[in-house]
């Protein structure tokens, strides 16, 4: 093996297409699990805020499980465990349709929903009850008070932890490689095995991950700046 040579990888069309495929799959896992997590988090928050008696302890148990069990173990439980318990028709269909990707999205999404729902809840809880009373007094119904008065303020308060956790979710998408999802880390291992240029391919992967994380943080910072009227007035 000769010295450091990035072009050995960057000019090889086979390696490039493997990397691009990995990037695409990582993006699909990230986007899929983020959307799943955020929609589930909103449902969990709604259950917690409702008057349904068993809702609160149920959601608390859900959050506690997903925060205290390592994400990798959750993924393994999904892919190696729950996958085998499914009826054969469903598991055959999954095997034919990239089961690793589907379980990576489900596992990461359900796990992240716990974090997102806690972020949203602490954001909403920081709004004083007077806001709700005032909105109701002005003729808003409960739902419309939530929609137009409480949630806009609550989500704004929850933005910093939501951004942090969105970045963590992106980094955790690399765990997909451990259950065989063909994402970026997987592509990197493949290129490494073919080219033996470990240093170069790790460097490329690191730069890609770092750049994407910084972009996510940057988008988050932009959104919080736009969402904050005081900051906007200052800018």
């Amino acid at each position: 093996m000769s010295g450091f040579d990035l072009s050995a990888i960057l000019t090889n069309p086979e390696y490039i297409s493997m990397l691009l495929h990995g990037i695409e799959m990582t993006f699909i896992i990230y986007a899929g699990s983020w959307l799943l997590a955020m929609s589930l988090a909103i449902v969990l928050l709604a259950i917690r805020l409702s008057t349904f008696r068993f809702g609160d302890p149920l959601v608390a148990a859900y959050v506690s499980y997903h925060r205290n069990v390592p994400t990798l173990v959750q993924l393994m439980l999904w892919y190696f465990g729950i996958f085998t318990l499914l009826p054969s028709g469903l598991s055959n269909w999954l095997s034919a349709n990239n089961a690793e990707m589907i379980f990576a999205v489900i596992g990461l999404g359900l796990c992240q929903a716990a974090y997102f729902s806690e972020d949203l809840r602490s954001g909403v809880r920081s709004i004083s009850p007077g806001q709700m009373e005032a909105a109701r007094a002005l003729g808003h119904s409960y739902v419309s008070a939530m929609r137009f008065v409480i949630m806009p303020q609550g989500v704004r308060n929850a933005l910093p932890p939501l951004i942090n956790h969105s970045t963590s979710l992106f980094k955790n998408s690399s765990l997909g490689v451990l259950i065989g999802a063909p994402e970026l880390t997987h592509a990197v291992k493949e290129v490494e095995n073919l080219s033996f240029r470990t240093f170069e391919i790790y460097l490329i992967a690191t730069v890609l991950y770092l750049a994407a994380s910084l972009v996510i943080m940057g988008i988050g910072a932009y959104i919080s700046m736009r969402a904050d009227p005081v900051g906007r007035a200052r800018a």
């Binding site: 506690s64 499980y65 925060r67 205290n68 069990v69 390592p70 173990v73 959750q74 393994m76 439980l77 190696f80 465990g81 729950i82 085998t84 318990l85």
Partner: peptide, 20 residues
């Protein structure tokens, strides 16, 4: 596999929950 990994999750949960 399900039983083994559920057991694994329970052990991690017990440790991390108590420390938290």
């Amino acid at each position: 596999p399900f039983q083994v990994f559920l057991l694994l999750a329970i052990v991690y949960y017990a440790i991390c929950w108590s420390l938290t």
